[in-house]
Design a protein around this nucleic acid. Structure first.
Lengths: 342, 342
DNA sequence: TCCTCTTCTGAAAAGCTTTTCAAATCGTTC
DNA sequence: GAACGATTTGAAAAGCTTTTCAGAAGAGGA
């Protein structure tokens, strides 16, 4: 394999100095027409493209962003990444994507890696920021945006939805539909993003409508795995009169529906199910999933825009941004009575 | 924001030359103990990490691979990426991931980008290699592995399953289960990967078992969108006696099941459905999807291993590798009679 | 003590580009 | 034709690291 042509080769072929070649590319108006044409011709003939490493060394800028994400196989993250990618393309960045599996060591290793590769900024997705993570992030001395997570302790910019309010709205939808026995399958309260706030929204909705919000009506699962059937069984056993279940993710919802189907319990006739996230597949489930939509693509897109603004030192927006959620009415939640206007 | 420490700062603090610092990091046995300790201490105190740009410039190696992929939101690709990521982590690479949306201009722009950023190799996923793509790839003078696609015209290494055989096996499964009226929803024959070979496998299976393989039993969809309902309606209209449908992707299968459910046609009692790909969600559909599993994760993993071998110039394996597929028996295909042993 | 042979160490070059600065060229004007 | 200013050009430095090469320091023997 022969060597890639360098600016030197172009200079030689065009019979000018390398400075002139550089100028043709970066400030063409400063070089006289005849030489410019010679240089352009040489560039074309050699198919010369400048080496981004050398450039990065000078500009101290690589036009590359680092992304840490728990697992790209999760469609929720895949959507976010897509939004990031499109914004990056628009702004001229590339994305280095790393799966952490929520593993401390793996995360730290990737952060180091980002530092060495001189990425211009970091997108930290979806995990709570623990004190030692914060310290690691600090030490990097790099712009960071938290994506689909945030931190109240630390002054870190973030982009996400308002989870508490979204959960509240979801449960309110069920209440407005006439349900009074509402259960929940959610993530552990130690999860400060998808766990606690969604439970709090759930509980607040029940409380504000004078319904039973005892913890008996809630089952918490840890992690994001497929042990939904157990959780579902537990919930039904503890709360047999339940007519509607709010779940903290569409995966949980779909798992729940599958379980209920196996048990011969019809959805939504006997039990209504409300999901959370609005992943693509909710549209193909049977019945189609009623859910609260996170604007995943926009979260990704917006977080890159924000990170870019910070890098360019022109961030004018809120430190913590909240993007709007919406309820997607499909077929998995039954309406017992029409909504009462407030 | 204060400047990142450089090797120079370390040298000054440890009161040695920069060469010595470099040696401590790259050949520690050649430097005398007392200085080594001083240097190590300085590195620790300054939290110094070498600049990968400068290193890349010297070694002509960035430990970065470029990935072009149609759309990361497609769970099939997401799985592949995950396999790539894990292999990359193991081998010390990072992945720059780019969505092409199967858009020529976007693809070319990213390839240029990879060239400028001096990636060590390219993973080209899932699209057929058209002549101009090949020319572009050639010009880059970079190692490439085709992932989940291949090329018979050009001498390019690739990793994928044997699509024709996999489709054959899937249809044979239906035949062995006792079905004789078998339809297909597939991708256009112009798609030389997911289209033509799977149709050929389908047709061969029917032919070899003396069943009707006229094209009336097949509906082709273009693209990967959600116009499955139309296709499903067409198939049923043209081929009302169908008892089993082979689809070229799980998305098509799930779309088909959703359509049949809406029409009041029971799966698998009235119509059996066989998917292709074994995406995660097939496990949660109702009924659970019978499908042929592509080893997506392994395809991703293996393609990075192969690319690495090529980069290191120690590739010993086949130019075109085919990984084994398997039939996943779940509930969407009905067994009319038990298998006859051949 | 001097010489030779190792072992360590530092200066400098190389890798590729951009940018600064001074020199060279050009065109005007007197 | 000379002088001036404006325009254009090339040499060299800078950005950060590794590596080569020659010189310095040390050890060992005579």
């Amino acid at each position: 394999m022969k060597m890639k042509p360098t600016i030197k080769d172009v200079a030689k072929l065009a019979n000018v100095s390398i400075s002139t070649v550089s100028r043709v590319m970066n400030a063409p108006e400063t070089v006289v027409e005849t030489k410019k044409l010679r240089v352009l011709d040489a560039i074309e003939r050699l198919k010369y493209k400048p080496n981004a490493l050398a450039r990065g060394l000078i500009y101290k800028k690589t036009n590359t962003l680092g992304v840490v994400i728990p697992d790209i196989r999760n469609p929720y993250y895949a959507d976010i990444i897509r939004g990031m990618e499109d914004a990056s393309k628009m702004l001229g960045y590339n994305l280095i994507i790393c799966n952490t599996d929520r593993d401390r060591a793996r995360l730290f290793s990737y952060l180091n890696n980002f530092y060495e590769k001189q990425v211009d900024g970091i997108l930290y997705t979806s995990d709570p920021v623990y004190p030692d993570y914060y310290k690691a992030l600090q030490r990097l001395q790099m712009p960071v945006v938290l994506v689909s997570t945030h931190s109240m302790e630390y002054r870190l910019p973030s982009v996400k939805i308002n989870d508490e309010q979204a959960a509240y709205d979801a449960v309110k939808y069920l209440i407005d539909s006439g349900h009074t026995s509402i259960g929940m399958i959610g993530f552990h309260l130690s999860d400060s993003i998808a766990g606690l706030p969604r439970y709090e929204g759930f509980a607040r909705a029940l409380r504000e409508h004078d319904l039973d919000d005892s913890k008996d009506n809630v089952v918490f699962v840890n992690g994001w795995s497929y042990d939904t059937p157990d959780a579902a069984a537990q919930l039904i056993a503890r709360f047999p009169s339940v007519t509607a279940v709010f779940t903290s993710s569409d995966e949980l919802a779909i798992g729940l529906i599958a379980y209920l189907h196996e048990q011969g319990i019809r959805v939504p006739e006997q039990i209504s199910v409300m999901g959370f996230d609005n992943i693509r597949w909710g549209n193909l489930s049977i019945p189609k999933l009623t859910t609260v939509a996170q604007p995943t693509y926009e979260i990704g897109f917006r977080s890159v825009m924000k990170l870019n603004a910070i890098i360019k030192e022109q961030d004018d927006s809120e430190l913590r941004e909240y993007l709007p959620h919406t309820i997607i009415e499909r077929a998995s939640a039954k309406i017992l009575k029409s909504f009462s206007s407030p």
